[in-house]
Nucleic acid binder design. Structure first.
Lengths: 238, 238
DNA sequence: CGTCTAGTTGAATTCCGTCAAAGCGGGTGG
DNA sequence: CCACCCGCTTTGACGGAATTCAACTAGACG
């Protein structure tokens, strides 16, 4: 089955939920059609890899739905998550030989993918696209550097509080059960929270328990968090 | 005194030592002249700030000589260095409202600076420049993410060993006393090494002492390091 | 020669990691 | 429908690595 015909995908693009937030925003209809002709939608199930660390960089894309993690392994087999990728975020390494980190779906996900060399060529000829990509990359670099402060200078409590606030912010309306409550669904399990924050699963668990006992959050289920006392949570985040 | 006349700077650019490594490489003579007309050279003494964290982003530039650090402070007054900037590296935050971290000269330095809005406008009209900047930003993002693995998952010994190897690599010929020895000059003091690695000055000092005692490095002076046993140092870095 | 800053070293403490065991919950098969 | 199982999470006890606090030392500079 081949979905890469311009016709089919042009329609997909029109209906695309991230159409005006992703890097393809601002392209004119003709450019969109052209971009369509080189890309295709790909569905990932939770746990499926899109990119493997160290592989040749063959794919780039845009996340349409779901969440992915970017991660890098250490020599002793542990892992550090170096980025979380949300809908409308760009993924992959254009203009480079190898992918310096793996990308794995955390939830079922939908990604609009391109062969890197097709994308590179297209980008070179469409400065507006490159400009969007540049802005996005600069923003991502800022975010990554803020994260470095977290990894380098914060204790376990500050790290977890910060992450919960970030989830609450970035998942926003999309994954929140409804707009009235302060409850949201965690996109990742305890082990991966640990891998994001540079801690162990036991430390995460203990910090959750402490926050629960202190009445700052409630944990209706393993994958849900309710913020009971936002000001305190913010102060814990430092 | 005004150095911003096209004439003067056009000549400066021709003689620029980083001319073919920085983002201005690949521009044609006409573009260079134009770029000159909006930029100027600025000399910094060690310790001088080029950008303040949180300030409005007014400046961007290229480092010509010397080294700078990018850093972000924590609420309790400690600091995390989020990037080291070497000659030919780009510095500052184009297309953004505020500078998310401070930039301070570690050594006396020479920087080719532009008003951000002038640079933004120029970049928008010169896709080749934006492309260079994009490549550079992508590379910087990769480097930053590798650093996250270091901050999140390595112990003090691995962190310091990794940093020494990076210095040895990146300072290369430029700051190395001479090409035959394994000695190089540290661009930063103990406190700032600690701020790079997310550790304290005491821990850095102890790790240096351990490596010295183990015969892996020698420390001819506070600011010099000699690598005596590179294979072991590499294995310490993990 | 004294002062000042940067770095080193030591002792006590704290936080987090490690190891181990038990608890929970969702799914499957009897 | 229930019992069992498996993976994930929680909790506890302990040890170790890094921080903290504090005293001391080495150079640099007047």
């Amino acid at each position: 089955m081949n979905f890469s015909g311009p016709q089919f995908l042009a329609e997909t693009c029109q209906a695309c939920t991230i159409r005006n937030r992703a890097i393809c925003a601002d392209l004119d209809p003709q450019e969109i059609t052209l971009l369509n002709s080189i890309g295709r939608q790909r569905e990932l199930v939770a746990g499926e890899h899109l990119l493997w660390e160290g592989d040749e960089a063959v794919l780039v894309g845009n996340v349409v739905e779901g969440m992915l993690k970017l991660s890098s392994g250490t020599s002793d087999g542990r892992e550090q998550i170096v980025g979380l990728v949300y809908p409308s975020d760009f993924i992959g390494r254009p203009f480079g030989a190898t992918t310096p980190y793996g990308a794995e779906a955390l939830t079922d996900a939908k990604v609009c993918v391109f062969q890197r060399k097709d994308f590179d060529a297209f980008a070179q000829e469409h400065p507006r696209l490159e400009h969007k990509l540049l802005e996005r990359t600069l923003t991502e670099l800022d975010r990554t550097r803020r994260w470095m402060v977290l990894l380098g200078r914060m204790d376990a409590e500050q790290k977890l509080a910060s992450l919960l606030l970030e989830f609450d912010d970035r998942l926003g309306a999309s994954l929140r059960a409804n707009t009235e409550t302060e409850t949201f669904e965690l996109p990742i399990g305890r082990q991966q929270i640990a891998d994001v924050l540079g801690l162990t699963i036991e430390t995460i668990s203990r910090q959750f328990s402490r926050m629960k006992k202190a009445g700052v959050v409630a944990l209706p289920s393993r994958r849900e968090v309710t913020i009971l006392d936002r000001p305190t949570l913010k102060s814990l985040a430092g």
